[in-house]
Design a binder for these strands. Structure first.
Length: 285
DNA sequence: ATTAATGTTCAGAA
DNA sequence: TTTCTGAACATTAA
């Protein structure tokens, strides 16, 4: 589930409790589900991480990244249902990994919890990290993208909603926030990206900033399935501010005129308001 | 029983 | 080369 705002919330939640602390040991939680993807395998991972100090905790697109004292880097990718927790997991069955910490602190461990188990955890050397996640695989972060990055995104002929999900062009936006961003920018999701006018590209960049920073302020979105929680198992609050996502059939909160529609693009749901987001660019100004 | 779910990746086809 | 489709990963809830 987590997109940029949810991963940013996880990072902010765990950072003050992990930085400068030493890893006593890594433990695999015994659940009867299939194990998640670990690279390298658990044994090697545990051996390599034991005794290292966590020097910094940061977000890279939709990954939680721990920089370690021997220059190796751990990247945790929550995918659909992964969470980083300091305490109080939603259930004990889907705890996957536990990092036990050395010094006494407010919390003694941090866990990776993942119900569906699609998440991945990978330990990189500095060189491997640069090669895999440096340039190419991930575009500029959605909160740091410059206008030229947005212009590059809009060279694609794909529908703008689909292009927004391309992590190689702009990294961090997922299915939920793509609909919210396009609604605020008043752009129809099926418009070819390459047909956007310069002022619409600027509106898209501004709407992305506005939606993502507001969502971070609300600590992310907890949907009806309730999977996403912050590091202390508390709900996010942005779902109450959603304008269109999962609101098909409801009245558009902006125009109070039209009904929010659901369509499918690239096999994924898109929500939009036909009145606020016309298929042809409004001509004015 | 069927369907859909906030993510990513791959193969194969247009 | 770009873009699209479907499937896969694994689990749960409506």
């Amino acid at each position: 589930m987590p997109e940029l705002p949810e991963v940013e919330t996880m990072v902010r939640g765990i950072r003050p409790h992990l930085e400068q602390r030493k890893i006593r040991e890594l433990r695999q939680c015994r659940c009867r589900c299939k194990p998640i993807s670990l690279t390298p395998g658990f044994r090697t991972l545990a051996t390599r991480m034991r005794g290292l100090t966590i020097t910094s905790v940061r977000r890279l697109a939709k990954r939680v990244v721990l920089d370690l004292s021997d220059e190796s880097i751990l990247a945790i990718e929550p995918r659909m249902t992964g969470l980083m927790l300091l305490a109080d997991p939603p259930d004990p069955e889907h705890l996957r990994l536990e990092w036990k910490l050395e010094e006494a602190g407010e919390y003694d461990s941090v866990w990776f919890w993942d119900r569906r188990g699609l998440g991945t955890v990978r330990l990189y050397t500095a060189d491997e990290f640069k090669a895999e996640l440096g340039t190419g695989r991930l575009g500029p972060d959605a909160l740091a993208a410059a206008l030229t990055d947005w212009e590059r995104l809009c060279q694609s002929h794909r529908a703008i909603k689909v292009a927004l999900l391309d992590q190689q062009r702009i990294a961090g936006i997922g299915n939920l926030y793509a609909s919210e961003i396009l609604h605020l920018a008043q752009i129809h999701p099926e418009r070819p990206a390459s047909n956007l006018l310069p002022r619409e590209i600027r509106a898209l960049a501004a709407a992305t900033q506005a939606v993502l920073t507001e969502a971070i302020r609300y600590e992310g979105s907890t949907l009806s399935d309730g999977t996403y929680r912050n590091a202390l198992n508390r709900d996010g609050g942005y779902q109450n501010a959603h304008r269109v996502y999962a609101r098909a059939g409801e009245c558009c909160p902006t125009c109070q005129t039209d009904i929010v529609q659901r369509i499918v693009q690239a096999q994924r749901s898109t929500f939009f308001c036909p009145n606020c987001q016309p298929l042809t660019a409004r001509r004015k100004r």
